[in-house]
Each structure stands twice: as C-alpha cells, then as structure tokens.
C-alpha cells in the first residue's frame, strides 16, 4: 500500500508538472467563453433566448464531453503509458518497491482524478458564467441538477479512458493509439446511432446519460442498468489493460531484441 501511495502521488506530481493540465484548463475556459458569447449574441441580435442560467452549464457539458474532454483524456493516457515507454522513463517508477498493479492503479486513478478535476473546473466556471449573464433564471434545484450531471458524467468518460489505457498497452506508438482512439470514438458514435438498442455497449453514447438523472420521472431501473454496464465494461477494460501492462518487458526504445 505504501508503494501505491507513493506511486499515486508521483503520478499526480508528473501530471501537474506537464503542460497538459494548463492546456486543458485554458481550452475549457475558452470553450465556456465561446459558448457564452454565442448565447449572448443570439439573445441580443435575434432576440432568442437559447439557454437560461441553469441550462448554460448543461449546454457546455454536452459540448465538452464530445470534444475537449475525450481529447485530453486520450492525450493524458498516451503520456502516462506510451510516452513513458518511448522515453524509457517507465522503469524509473517500476524500479522501486511497488508492484506493477500498484503502478497501473496509480496511473488509472490519476486519470480518474484528471477527469473529475477537469469536469469540476468547467462546471464551476460555466456556472459562474451562466449565473453572471442569466442570473434571473437561477434556482437551487437547477444547481443541484448541474452538479449531479457533471458528477455522473465522470463515470462514462472514465470508462472511455480505460479503453484508451487498454489501447496504449496494445500499441507501441502513441500516434497509433491516438488515431485508433479517434476511429473508435467516431465508430462508437455511429454504431450507437445505427444500433440504438445496443447503444449502452458503445461507451461514448453514454456520455449524455446524465439526462436520465434530470428527467422529472427518474427511471431508477434504467439508471442502475447503465451503471452496471459501465462498471462491467470498466472492470473488463482495467483487467485487460493491466494484463498487458504486467506482461510487458521493459526495454530501452531502440535496443535490438
């Protein structure tokens, strides 16, 4: 457990020291600002009220979960695995008294932390922007719904992250993982649309599952089913990813084998 704690803190330090976090934060702010400007322009020029103070964070959420967030999740995972394999720095972590399961779990938990932090950051910023420009339509129930939506979105995005973790342990090169992730992301969205009865198994179609929590009559059975499917997928992806990570021989890149 000590080894895991140290590995977890180290992964967090490495994540913070890299520029990915700052880039994610800046792009998130830009996305929120662009959304707010668009909403305000439409309201002022056309006289159409697109969203109120409570709906604006949800509009932002629906945009970033299909754009910036999966992109940064992919980049962070590639950095954590392929980046460290190719720069031969993975051994710096592994050559310590910590099991490979400890290292793998520390990386995966940091990914979860990154997703959570990114979503919370966007939520706070978009709530602030929404309330500032449309303070008239703000309500406590609305705020609770926003928090619930952002929190529930962490789960499908994390499961998608686990899929990228698996890919990054299958493919040697980060660029291959990146392109495969894009193909899978687009493919899942298309398949989710074409085969809507099986859409629960295409994890990207779950990115908007927070709408289940927002409806007036909450379908508890459906929510539980979705949670179980996501947990099942997550568990399988984690296990498959760890299996490959554990079996992997760590050589210097370029050394002849």
């Amino acid at each position: 457990m000590k080894g895991f704690n140290a590995a977890f803190v180290n992964e967090a330090v490495k994540l913070l020291k890299k520029k990915k976090m700052i880039s994610a934060a800046i792009l998130s702010i830009l996305a929120v600002l662009a959304g707010q400007i668009a909403v305000t322009l439409i309201k002022n020029d056309l006289g159409i009220r697109v969203v109120g103070g409570n709906e604006f964070p949800l509009l932002v959420l629906s945009i970033i979960t299909y754009t910036i967030l999966p992109l940064f999740v992919t980049l962070v995972v590639i950095d954590m695995f392929n980046g460290e394999f190719s720069s031969n720095t993975m051994k710096l972590t592994l050559l310590n008294p910590v099991s490979r399961l400890g290292v793998f779990s520390a990386k995966v938990l940091n990914l979860a932390l990154f997703i959570f932090a990114n979503l919370m950051f966007v939520m706070i910023f978009s709530m602030f922007a929404g309330f500032l420009f449309n303070s008239a339509s703000v309500s406590l129930v609305g705020v609770i719904k926003i928090i619930l939506s952002y929190l529930s979105t962490c789960l499908p995005v994390f499961v998608f992250g686990l899929l990228i973790v698996l890919l990054s342990n299958v493919f040697e090169r980060g660029s291959a993982v990146f392109f495969m992730s894009i193909i899978i992301f687009i493919g899942f969205n298309i398949f989710g649309f074409l085969f809507s009865s099986y859409s629960s198994f295409f994890i990207t179609s779950m990115f908007d599952w927070y709408t289940l929590w927002l409806s007036d009559s909450i379908n508890v059975f459906k929510i539980i089913r979705q949670i179980l499917i996501m947990l099942g997928c997550g568990l399988m992806l984690f296990t498959a990813g760890f299996y490959l990570f554990d079996r992997r021989d760590i050589h210097n890149k370029g050394s002849e084998r």
Binding site: A7, V13, K17, N88, K91, L92, N96, P97, S255
Partner: peptide
Amino acid sequence: MKHIGCMIETAESYPYLTAYEHLQLVARFY
C-alpha cells in the same frame, strides 16, 4: 526491491523535472 538501488541500461530522467524533484519522486517510496 526494498533493498535494491539500481540504474539499468541508461540513466533516464523526466525532462520537465529538476534533479531535486526527481529524487523526491524516488524518496516517496522510502
């Protein structure tokens, strides 16, 4: 691994960390 210190193949480092930060990463395990 508790009693081993090692340097295998080549000495690698994280380019975005200082020497002190590097050693802090290792120190957390001990």
